[in-house]
Nucleic acid binder design. Structure first.
Length: 213
DNA sequence: GCCAACGTTGGC
DNA sequence: GCCAACGTTGGC
């Protein structure tokens, strides 16, 4: 285990729920002049398809990671309305996926990272599209970021609701051993807590997770 | 615990 | 704008 895990703090007194994944970095940075959220050229990059205009009714798929010791899928199932805000993400690419890519109704694979075994354990659904992450504004939060101000929020989150628990975990070794899943962003991009999943990848992983035996 | 792969920061 | 130093994630 690594540093994280340290997370798990007071419950955010906010709307949805507790904290989750990505712990953060340290610290309180000294007061700095507000920065405008940087816009990366990701629209033209390898993730362009995640942000491209959608066909009418098109649903997209994603994967989010959380350490089970911090916020597990069982915690999500036990949360009010089986819903939580996916706060505390402090990585610009993951932020962009949440702020600009995810839409209500999209389905999300729930992955337990730093777990034994690390695995996809269930499915949740986006029920609220990107909105400012309140924890970044709160000086008492361990996720406080002085660079994020209400006028120009730096960090965003979405709300997700649990849809179904897999009947068995689809482990990382299994994913790595599946030919059709070799291109999954989960395997290709290291250390990103929110990543896109293609429709075929989603179908394969979900089928594996819902099949007994 | 180790370390690879990144992302971010800051000096220049 | 370059790039080295540093921090973080997360598999192993």
């Amino acid at each position: 285990m690594s540093a994280k895990k340290a997370a798990r703090k007071k419950a955010a007194p906010q709307k949805a729920a507790p904290k989750k994944a990505t712990p953060k970095s340290a610290a309180l940075k000294k007061a700095a002049p507000p920065k405008v959220p940087r816009s990366l050229p990701y629209e033209q990059g390898k993730w362009a398809s995640a942000f491209a205009p959608r066909a009418p009714g098109e649903r997209r798929y994603w994967l989010v990671k959380s350490e089970p010791g911090v916020f597990s899928f069982a915690d999500l199932l036990a949360a009010p309305k089986r819903t939580t805000c996916w706060d505390a993400v402090r990585n610009t690419s993951a932020r962009n996926f949440m702020r600009d890519g995810m839409k209500t109704g999209d389905l999300v694979l729930y992955y337990h990272s730093n777990a034994e075994p690390s695995a996809v354990v269930g499915v949740c659904e986006v029920v609220r599209e990107g909105y400012p992450d309140e924890s970044a504004f709160d000086p008492s939060s361990e996720y406080f970021d002085a660079d994020s101000v209400r006028e120009t929020p730096m960090w965003y989150m979405v709300d997700v609701r649990a849809v179904e628990a897999f009947v068995r975990p689809v482990t990382l070794p299994e994913i790595k051993a599946t030919a059709a899943l070799q291109q999954m962003a989960l395997l290709k991009v290291s250390r990103l807590s929110v990543v896109p999943v293609t429709p075929s990848e989603w179908e394969i992983v979900r089928t594996m997770g819902m099949r007994k035996g």
